[in-house]
Design a protein around this nucleic acid. Structure first.
Length: 424
RNA sequence: GUGGCCGUAGCUCAGUUGGCAGAGCGCCAGGUUGUGGUCCUGGACGUCGCGGGUUCGAGUCCCGUCGGUCACCCCA
């Protein structure tokens, strides 16, 4: 630690995934990939930065995420670029650009796992770089696609072992329904505008629907008795919502309809949903999604409906941790080679190559420490087996194989040890 | 962006009205010329987050700053 230069720290709100935790990440990412593939979604990987315009047009100028939380910078050619704050806009941009929606009736089902960036003040479950697993279905307008996404999402949580989940859904309807409801809401709230919180007074003009899910007492009071969104749904939107609830019921997925659920991004049009989990503190949304039937067109593609969700992986891991859920991070057993003397060390160096070539996970300490120290290391590294070589083994053409859990040690001919360890 | 709490060894933390920098765990070595997870003995490891101020003297008091944490806000 004695260094003259001051140590550089990770940027605020970012975290290193250290060796002790990476197995947990790999485990949930593996579950996500297997499950998405099972539901016939293919992986897509898009850049972590995009032209800033993409998020302004796609996610929306009035959303906090775009208006005050992006990491935006100019490159050497003076183009404005932004680290992606969410996954959907980039995926839709990529799908349009690759022409995957150009055929009539084309559909695309993709999933992604990767980092997003938002310059917020960090707190529990909220980081400046966070990771999401998400899926998008493009080209299917039916509620079946919405419900497929929700089922996949809930099954993901089930397989990871999260408990105490709550699914809430709502529908603000298509663009026309949303506009009608927006007008009605403004009309209802306006007489009491001066009693709203400062933030909501601003939102009354820019994004009045957001006032619905404000936690501010003044806002809650002002919207009491406000007309429900359901009354302003077009016939098509109402039908869509009904079918979605019906399908969820038949799939035995518990949910509640929450008329105050309004999700942040401008591109949402019909159904939106959110899943919360116990153990997360104030940031208790573990994932959310919704339908965005205008986004593809807004981004320059042929008008195509879309639906998807994003799920925060840090929050998932926090919930699992807080709930005391064990994640299966088992690896193949580790073999530790113990060398007593230089000749033995050289022999073990060769043996280690043979074992690795044969698929046996193994390691050794090359620093010439005492047998005791080498066994302590094996113990600390959670090795299952030790293979000891010393003068007597070299003379006899054997190694000493020890089961470190039971302490039992046997002599094995040197030319049989690789095959023997392959079979344990 | 606003506010509360917190930064001392690798980790968890003590440190009294300002007066020699501490404990437990972990780590290294020995006890056992070749055997771990128990035990015993010894040892190493600190810019007290950083910068400034007050003072004879600051881990301790004051100011600033960086970071962590929690909440608001927002969201995964």
């Amino acid at each position: 630690m004695a260094s003259t230069a001051s140590a550089i720290q990770a940027p605020k709100g970012t975290r290193d995934i250290l060796p002790a935790e990476s197995a947990r990440w790999q485990a949930i990412e593996r579950i996500a990939r297997e499950l998405a593939t099972l539901y016939h979604f293919d992986e897509i990987r898009t850049p972590i930065f995009e032209h800033s315009e993409l998020f302004h047009r796609g996610v929306g100028e009035t959303t906090d995420i775009v208006s005050k939380e992006t990491y935006t910078f100019s490159d050497r050619e003076d183009r404005s670029l932004t680290l992606r704050p969410e996954g959907t806009a980039g995926v839709v941009r990529a799908v349009i650009e690759a022409g995957l929606l150009n055929d009539q009736g084309a559909r695309v089902k993709v999933f992604y796992i990767g980092p997003n960036f938002r310059c917020e003040k960090p707190q529990k479950g909220r980081y400046r770089q966070h990771h999401q697993f998400g899926v998008e279905t493009l080209g299917i307008a039916e509620a079946d696609a919405d419900v497929e996404c929700i089922l996949l999402q809930m099954e993901f949580y089930r397989r990871c072992g999260v408990k105490d989940l709550a699914l809430r859904i709502n529908s603000l309807g298509d663009a026309e329904s949303k506009q009608r409801y927006r007008d009605a809401l403004v009309k209802f709230i306006s007489p009491a505008a001066s009693t709203l919180s400062e933030e909501s007074q601003r939102r009354l003009a820019s994004n009045p629907l957001r006032i619905l899910d404000s936690k501010d007492e003044r806002d809650i009071k002002a919207i009491r008795g406000a007309p429900p969104a359901a009354e302003y749904l077009s016939e098509a939107s109402a039908k869509h919502f009904t079918r979605a609830r019906d399908l969820l019921g038949k799939a035995n997925v518990p949910f509640t309809v929450d008329g105050t659920l309004v999700r942040g991004f401008d591109y949402y049009t019909g159904i939106v949903w959110e899943v919360t989990a116990a153990g997360l503190g104030a940031q208790n949304a573990i994932g959310g999604g919704g339908r965005y039937d205008n986004l593809v067109e807004m981004l320059g593609g042929r008008a195509t409906p879309g639906v998807g969700f994003g799920s925060g992986l840090e929050r998932l891991l926090i919930a699992l941790e807080e709930q005391g859920v064990a994640i299966d991070t088992r690896q193949r057993p580790l073999v530790w080679l113990v060398s007593l003397g230089d000749a033995a060390r050289d022999a073990n160096w060769q043996l280690m190559q043979q074992l690795r070539a044969a698929g046996v996970r193994c390691d050794m300490d090359p620093t010439g420490r005492s047998a005791k120290s080498q066994f302590k290391l094996a113990d600390r590294e959670k090795a299952a087996w030790s293979v000891t070589t010393g003068d007597s083994e070299l003379a006899g053409g054997t190694v000493s194989l020890k089961n470190l859990a039971s302490g039992e040690q046997t002599s094995v001919p040197r030319d049989q040890i690789v095959a023997k360890l392959q079979s344990v």
